Simulated assay, not measured.
Amino acid sequence: MRKLSYLPYKYFLILLKFNNKNIQISIMKQEDQDEISVSQSLGISRRFAKYLLKQVAHYDRVRKAKEEYQKLTKRIQSLTVAFSDYEIDGLIQYKDKDNDSYTRFMRDAGLESHQVLQLYITYKFGAQKGAMFTLQEFILGMIRLRCNSVKDLKKLTPELLQKIKKENKYKKLYKYYFGVISLGKNVIRFTEAITLWESLLKDQFKEITDFIQFCQAKPQEFQTITKVSFDLWCQVWKFFETIGNDYQKFDENDAWPLLIFEYVEFKKK
C-alpha cells in the first residue's frame, strides 16, 4: 500500500477498481461527502461545491475548495450586484408581461434572437426550472463562462455559437431541455413539444417543418390529452438524424413510436 500512496489519485482509483470494488464504492461516497461538506460550510449549492472541488487537487480537497471559493469573493460580489439589476422576487424570471427580467437579461446579453444560445446558457447555468435563474445558478454559470458582467457575456456570443457547433452540443442540449421543461415528470404536453420542436430543431433538420405541420393537423382533442415522453422526444431526434426524408432507411420492424409510424405513412401517401 505504501507504493500505491505515491500514485496520482486517478490511477489509485483504477487499481482499486480491479482489486477491491468495495473500496471503489467508498471513495465515490467520499466525493459526495466532500460536496456536502463544502456546500454546508459555505452555504452554497452542491453543484457549486462540485465545481469548486473540480478546480483543486484531490489531496485535502475540502480545504482547498474553500480556499478556491475565497479567491472568487470579489467576482461573486460583482455578479451579485449584476443579478440584483434583474432580480424579481429572488429570481431572474418571466413572471408576467410587466415583470419579465428573463427576456431583459437575454436581450442585454445579445441572446434574444438566439434560441439555441439561450438554451446553452440555461444549460451552463444549470437552471432547474426553465426560463428562470436563482442567484447561485447565475453566479456559477457566469463563473463557468468566465464572465464578470452581462457585457462580457454579450462579447462572448460569437465564440459560444462556434463552440456549440464545433462540439456538436445540440443533441445534449435537446435532451437537457426536456428535463427542465418536464420538471422531472418525464412527460410534457403535446402542444408544448410542438412549439419546442419548431424552435429547437428548425436549424438542425430541414424536414422538421413537415413533421410540425403533421403534428399540428392532429385533432384538437388529441393534442390536448396527449403527452410526449422522454423516449418519444429522443426518438424524434433519432428519426431525423438517421432517416430524414429517405424513407427507404425506415425499417418498420424497428421500435419506432406510433407517432413516427403515422408520420412516415402520411409522407408516403
Score class of each variant (00 low, 15 high):
243 I>W: 06
107 R>I: 02
124 K>C: 14
164 I>R: 11
195 T>E: 07
222 F>S: 04
187 V>M: 11
265 E>G: 08
174 Y>R: 12
162 Q>F: 05
251 D>C: 02
57 A>L: 04
199 S>F: 00
77 Q>C: 09
118 Q>A: 03
160 L>P: 00
73 T>Y: 08
60 D>R: 11
10 K>G: 01
144 R>C: 09
126 G>F: 14
25 I>S: 11
39 S>I: 03
253 N>A: 05
143 I>C: 13
27 I>Q: 03
232 L>W: 00
90 G>T: 01
113 S>E: 01
186 N>M: 13
27 I>D: 04
184 G>H: 11
159 E>P: 06
26 S>V: 07
237 W>I: 01
16 L>S: 02
71 K>Y: 14
258 L>H: 10
185 K>V: 10
11 Y>F: 09
117 L>I: 05
125 F>M: 15
201 L>N: 04
30 Q>D: 10
144 R>I: 02
50 K>A: 13
170 Y>C: 09
193 A>C: 01
140 L>R: 04
236 V>W: 01
188 I>F: 04
264 V>I: 09
137 E>V: 07
84 S>V: 02
64 K>Q: 15
67 E>N: 11
12 F>Y: 12
123 Y>S: 07
251 D>E: 11
263 Y>N: 08
29 K>L: 15
197 W>H: 08
116 V>C: 06
140 L>E: 07
227 K>A: 14
185 K>P: 04
221 E>D: 10
236 V>K: 02
175 K>Q: 03
239 F>E: 03
234 C>W: 02
86 Y>G: 05
267 K>Q: 15
68 E>P: 05
32 D>T: 06
189 R>C: 12
86 Y>C: 15
168 N>Q: 15
4 L>V: 09
229 S>M: 00
70 Q>S: 11
206 K>G: 05
263 Y>M: 08
36 I>F: 06
167 E>W: 06
134 T>N: 03
204 Q>D: 13
87 E>Y: 01
190 F>N: 02
11 Y>N: 08
21 K>L: 13
252 E>D: 10
244 G>Y: 12
